[in-house]
């Protein structure tokens, strides 16, 4: 019994220490971007803190442009995807019609398909549609995602039917029931999906790399990779840009972290 009690008290300590070890690389990099170029590998803390690295990447490199591109793509994809997914999920969870089962099976069958698997044919499809090297090419194929539909459908199955039936008795059509009853109820599920979609699209690298050549269309992750090639050992600049690129993701995560666990429970990933 004594050892039991001791271990219980030891556990938080171990957890805190491990957490520090896990974040240490990130903290180290954040400190590094405030060092002058000559101190990057020599000191633990900078002798004089400098904003030179941050200023350089924001002014001498079109980093703001890359950030803007990523912001536009991620926000548009997220908003449109939430809209179309909730509509599809409402239809699959609540309406009865021939072909629903087949449609649902098809959607589920695409759950485990990741981008690398369909990269080449998807590239050919997008090329055929004339969307190479365009914002539309970055945005449109990224919208469609079975996971979002599935998660929302599972959520809608748990919404009591009575709420919707009351609206139906008031003479509301399907659109009004979806818009006025279902959508407001699904705010928590939508919020958690918004976090996931924003992160996935802000962090996207392979797809933009495959379909864009125009430097004006570079998203932030592509911009980082191109910096890596250009400034091979100027780590102050590369890391400053990397930290700037990571700030929005960490901020969105901090704002929505509680929702993430909820999302996984709703999706029933087990």
């Amino acid at each position: 019994m004594r050892s039991e009690r001791r271990r219980v008290r030891l556990q938080p300590l171990v957890a805190h220490l491990l957490a520090l070890v896990v974040v240490a690389p990130m903290v180290w990099v954040v400190i590094t971007i405030f060092k002058p170029q000559c101190e990057i590998f020599t000191s633990v803390l900078p002798t004089s803190w400098t904003l030179d690295n941050l200023a350089y990447v924001m002014t001498k490199i079109p980093l703001p442009r890359y950030l803007l591109n990523s912001a536009v793509v991620s926000v548009v994809v997220t908003v449109v995807a939430l809209f179309t997914h909730s509509m599809a999920a409402y239809s699959l969870a609540r309406l009865r019609y021939p072909g629903r089962g087949i449609a649902f099976s098809f959607i589920i069958s695409t759950l485990l398909v990741s981008l690398p698997v369909i990269l080449v044919p998807l590239f050919l499809v997008v090329k055929q549609l004339g969307l190479l090297d365009s914002y539309a090419g970055l945005i449109v194929p990224s919208i469609f995602n079975a996971f979002g539909i599935f998660l929302l459908r599972q959520f809608y199955l748990t919404v009591p039917r009575e709420l919707e039936e009351a609206a139906a008795l008031d003479g509301c059509g399907y659109w009004r029931r979806y818009w006025n009853v279902i959508l407001p109820l699904s705010r928590p599920a939508l919020a958690s999906l918004a976090v996931l979609f924003f992160l996935a699209n802000w962090n996207a690298f392979l797809w933009p790399l495959t379909i864009t050549r125009d430097p004006d269309l570079r998203v932030i992750q592509l911009g980082l990779a191109s910096l890596q090639g250009q400034y091979a050992s100027a780590y102050g600049y590369i890391l400053a840009a990397a930290v700037i690129a990571a700030v929005p993701t960490v901020a969105v995560f901090a704002a929505g972290q509680r929702r993430l666990v909820d999302a996984m429970k709703t999706a029933g990933l087990k």
Binding site: S91, R96, Y97, R100, A103, F106, I107, Y174, W175
Partner: peptide
């Protein structure tokens, strides 16, 4: 109901 169902599903089904 069937028409509404398919219309709601259409954008995503087509995209996927």
């Amino acid at each position: 109901e069937a028409v509404a169902g398919w219309l709601f599903l259409l954008p995503d089904a087509l995209g996927l």
